[in-house]
Nucleic acid binder design. Structure first.
Lengths: 339, 339
DNA sequence: GCTTCCAATGGGAGCGCTCCCACTCCCCTT
DNA sequence: AAGGGGAGTGGGAGCGCTCCCATTGGAAGC
């Protein structure tokens, strides 16, 4: 006969610690939670027992008892999972992760791309699988917005969704950044400043176009109509080509993000236009790639890691019962060679 | 008098569902878990009750009872949190997330950069805060390797750690890829093929140098000594500059990743060497940036999303009690203009 | 010296679910 | 006709923790 094939050597429990320390579970629990009403002697006894047994509290049991999971979810929506492959999100995560760590919260990452994924997120929200949620990259009329709203759980938006402004959000000053970029182009004497928009079904896309528009109108110039790209390099190249055809005399272009600016640069190069001599180009995002572009891209820097950090901080505050206020992070122009 | 300020309107429980459906908790539980031994009538009654109450099972309670959290952790080690900002990880995550979704597992992301972060990971492992772990980017002698080993929990390594090969891992054929890249350079008639290594305290760095070495030796050529960069663009530029000084006659260079290749390209350009006419350059990784480099970079493609996907799949298999075998994913050369 | 108060303590009732097990029928063998 | 087997069912004991509450005893207040 063999031994039982499943040696149930389980983790020690609080009960075991208490017993070894010669105290009750209550006292042991208090020591672990750093709560008052424990004598120094027993406190030390418990600490010794914890060390001896290499005890680690079971987070699940604690979660059940306290009704707090100790986790925050970062939900990235969008039909295409590869939207997430954008280094943008990696940066956001670095920031969010750091802030969450400070608040002693774990990070659950949910890419709600497929139907199944969305359903799982929904269950997470409604089943209280996390203490709070950060919602990013929601599309127009995203059903997740409603679910999040109904779930009785703190929700912070990273970047405002299209249309309504939620109760709590952290966003970047897209309009201001776009305005600054356009004004800069104007200040360099350019007058025929074209624009390559991002998707206009996103708030980012709209806000950046708005900033461009503001600056043009303020300068008494006619803004170009919104030529829509989809934030990718090829779309930037395509829109640039179309622009060149319709307005051969343009002398500058503001692209709503760096990827599209890179595409524009490529088209311009292929068309034999010199940058910035013939056409000045400004992007938005200040990705690593912007620095390495040829020529290095003048672009609007946005604090991506800070966006993640502040979103997470706001969520943590909410979870702790505080009432933070929405936040808009500043952007600033980084001058390089392309404009 | 005001009403109680904390309306404890709680989620309905299984108990409530059972009561509404006129069955016992056991039966309701069976229905929810799709278990047998339930009559059709009661099954439907329970389903109706679930809908009526908009019942969602509490994952925490389930986790406590089953001793399964339903989550897998992806731990990214490394002293510098920004290592994670590398688009590499974003890709890995997309793959892992998809595979985890299929296995109905949630993704917990842990960036173990700070001491506090490492401690939290340790607690996660030892406290059974997840059903399994994927470990990536471990450094030499990383204490996490031991903790993971001791934790009685499935562990899969994404990329082998330096030195020991763990029981379960998914890796990319770094040596084969580097060999292929070098062979290609050789086959184009280059004979003075230099190398820019990655950090040699990582297995990736070593394996890629090994591949380069193999190819050189097989061709009867003297391999260059390992000139170590740290996988960043500036380090590639610096090593390239040093190389040019010591070996002005070199006619090709294999860089252990695309970032360093980009740096090399920059140095070469500044030194007035034409690529590929004077010096051919091959990178490794096939990042998006490689395509946009000037000239577009010939590089070794590695299936990053697949790495994430397979790592997650292996972990899921382990969690389900299966016994998978380690996996090495193929790489292949992508020919572009730089070589 | 006697009440008053509060720090210290441990018992016990949950938190919401799973799962073992005992029990009842009912159908199908021999 | 008696027995076995299994499907269907519900009760109850956990899972490991927190937290309320009753109890104790010694210090402080009068």
């Amino acid at each position: 006969m063999v031994m039982a094939d499943d040696p149930p050597r389980r983790q020690p429990t609080l009960e075991a610690v208490a017993e070894l320390a010669g105290v009750s579970r209550s006292v042991a629990s208090r020591v672990l939670n750093n709560a008052p009403h424990v004598s120094q002697v027993k406190r030390e006894a418990v600490e010794r027992a914890v060390r001896e047994l290499a005890y680690v509290p079971n987070p699940t049991a604690r979660a059940l008892a306290t009704r707090q999971t100790g986790a925050a979810a970062l939900v990235v929506s969008g039909e295409d999972p590869s939207i997430f492959a954008d280094p943008f999100f990696a940066q956001v995560i670095v920031g969010a992760s750091a802030a969450l760590e400070e608040a002693d919260l774990h990070l659950m990452l949910c890419l709600a791309a497929t139907d199944r994924g969305r359903r799982r997120v929904e269950e997470l929200l409604r089943g209280k699988g996390a203490d709070g949620v950060m919602l990013m990259a929601l599309r127009e009329n995203d059903p997740l917005a409603r679910t999040a709203d109904e779930a009785e759980m703190p929700v912070v938006f990273g970047g405002r969704p299209v249309g309504s402004a939620p109760r709590w959000y952290v966003d970047v000053d897209n309009t201001g950044g776009a305005r600054e970029a356009t004004e800069y182009l104007l200040s360099r004497g350019r007058t025929r400043v074209a624009v390559i928009c991002g998707r206009l079904d996103t708030e980012v896309g709209r806000a950046r176009y708005r900033g461009y528009q503001d600056a043009m109108l303020a300068a008494g110039l006619e803004p170009f109509p919104p030529n829509e790209g989809d934030f990718t390099e090829p779309s930037g190249a395509a829109v640039m080509a179309a622009l060149l055809l319709q307005h051969p005399d343009l002398d500058a272009v503001f692209a709503a993000n760096d990827n599209m600016a890179a595409g524009a640069l490529r088209t311009l190069r292929e068309a034999g236009r010199r940058v910035p001599a013939d056409v000045a180009v400004v992007g938005f995002d200040d990705l690593a790639a912007a620095r390495m572009a040829d020529p290095p891209l003048t672009t609007v820097h946005q604090p991506i890691a800070a966006l993640g950090r502040e979103t997470a901080r706001m969520l943590a505050a909410l979870i702790h019962g505080e009432t933070p206020t929405p936040l808009i992070l500043p952007t600033h122009l980084v001058r390089r060679a392309s404009a």
